Computed example of a mutant assay.
Amino acid sequence: MSKRRKKVRGNPARQARPAEPTSQPGGLRGFRQARREGRDTSTAPQRRDEVRGGYLSEANRRAAEGADSNPHLLLYSLLGLMVLLFAYLHLYALPQMNYFAGGFSMPDARLFGYSVEDIERLRNVMDSDGTGQLSFLHRTAGILFPLSFVLSAWAVVGLVMRRGVFRWMVLAGAAIFAVVDITENFLIDQILTMEPLEESLVAVSSAFTVTSWALLMIIGAVVIGSVVMSLISRGVERA
């Protein structure tokens, strides 16, 4: 009787299969194992939930987009605060002060400066309550607005504008505006209450007012324009 080997019957799953290469652990475990084995740690396998088919997983992609948008949310918040303070100071509060000045506009609102005659006219119609209200406005919104302008320019320079000398010029211009504008507020308070009135101080205060308005319009246009261009370019890239 010939002896033949019988075919192996049974569950095919139990039959021997070619061994598959074991995947190396990823994440921190893979990094430690690569370091123990003396391999290059920069090529340590990543976690499977981090990369799928060469692309970040959906959760990590959303997290990356959120990390990128958080600084821009801060930027937009600072810009919104700056616009609100500007509207309150120059479009609401200062026009309201005309009531204490017999209908005459405040020196802060005069883009082209003012003369000694203009200040004398204000001094004749404004009482101590009016000058006190203007001084209080200068020490609150008159300081907060220039500071918010500097912070907004700093955020735009750091997050939107490209590296170069120009962005430092923009930031320096914003800082100079803040110093000039705050100094102008104190000079106006002084020339409205000092006795006697000094013409040289009026000329200096008027020059500070014109300079602050010029810097505000130039630097403000650059800051707002940079943000608008950045939003347009981001929209084009996403499209």
Rank of each mutant, 00 (worst) to 15 (best):
R48Y: 10
L122Y: 00
H138L: 04
L187K: 06
F145Y: 07
Q24I: 09
A174S: 08
M229T: 12
V222P: 00
V180R: 00
F166N: 06
G235Y: 01
M82N: 12
A153E: 01
V83Y: 10
R39E: 08
M1F: 11
W168V: 09
A63L: 14
T211P: 01
A172Y: 05
E20N: 02
A155Q: 01
F177W: 09
F186L: 04
R4Y: 06
T41Y: 06
S206Q: 04
L74K: 07
V157R: 07
M217R: 06
N11H: 04
L94Q: 09
A13Y: 05
L144P: 00
T22P: 09
S23A: 15
T211S: 14
E199A: 13
Q190L: 09
F112S: 14
R36I: 05
M161Q: 11
F31Q: 07
R35K: 15
L89D: 10
H138A: 12
A93E: 06
Y55F: 15
F100T: 05
R39V: 06
R234A: 09
G38I: 05
L147I: 15
Q96A: 13
R9F: 06
I219F: 05
A19R: 13
P107M: 00
T193S: 09
A67G: 01
A155S: 12
P107T: 08
Q96D: 09
A63M: 12
Y88V: 10
R32E: 11
I176W: 06
V236Q: 11
F136M: 13
D108Q: 13
N124C: 06
N98E: 11
F104V: 08
V223R: 02
L187M: 13
A67H: 03
R39H: 12
R238A: 11
F112V: 08
F208E: 05
S23N: 14
R61A: 14
V236R: 12
L187I: 06
M1C: 11
W154R: 12
T140S: 14
A16E: 13
R47E: 14
